[in-house]
Amino acid sequence: MTDSLKAELFRCRKDKLLLFAFIFVTAGFIFMTFIAGFAEHNDRVTIFTSGNISQFCSIVKMAVFVLYFVWFQEYRYGTMKNLCMSETTKGQYFTAKFLTQIIVCIALMVWVLICFSLCLLTLEKGTGDTSPFIKEGLLILLRLSLFSVMEIAVIDLLFVITKNEIVSFLLFFIVLSNSGAYIAQLAEKAGIGGDRVYPLTIGGAYDTATTSAIPASDSIIFIVSVTARVLIIYTLTLLILRKEVNYEKKK
């Protein structure tokens, strides 16, 4: 397991695609700060209160998608067959991949924090106390990190099912991310309660993660529900992979 993890981290260091996620976050944040400069109020307080923070979060959500390559490289380079020769078990092999994605994701979040702090420093101070907003910003980053882990788990599942990069991209960003409101409306019509169903969707989870000033109880529910969903999705992915690798072995 440790060897697999080391191997995956080594591969990550060598792959230039990973660098793109960091460059994308940096460029996106610089761009957003530049654009915020055109707004009537462009101080540090307004950036938290005007809803601009969700724009920064959307950059992170998109950058996290790049981590797909850790999972997808076996399909891309046709090296899935190597797993049949390896002594490492399937579970260990793919768990090492998933853990690598989480490690890179944490590194990305640290980079996001650095970039966002630098962007804030370039803006005017504005009127009012910024410390509650900074605390809120950190909580958003924490929830966003957890959402990103769920995003990774969903992307991995999508890749295992579709085996196509663009289809997975479209399914995640167009279908899953935007279907929350429609699912909630259908649930409302069915009498289940749209408000209860919406947070369970990808769009709903993202909204909860990026909304500022949500009650502490809601934050705890979010953390528990997202962790549970990550475990369920990852188990499902492993089950599908198990069948697939057994099929490769039979071949």
Binding site: F20, F24, A39, E40, V66, E165, I166
Partner: peptide, 27 residues
């Protein structure tokens, strides 16, 4: 690379509206 191209296209496309909305108040 498909995904890098997709992210650049999707993001620049989506951001064009944001730019327009943010700039709408100012100019």
């Amino acid at each position: 690379n498909e995904i890098i191209a997709a992210i650049i296209y999707y993001y620049s496309f989506a951001q064009l509206f944001t730019v327009k909305l943010i700039m709408a108040g100012a100019m």
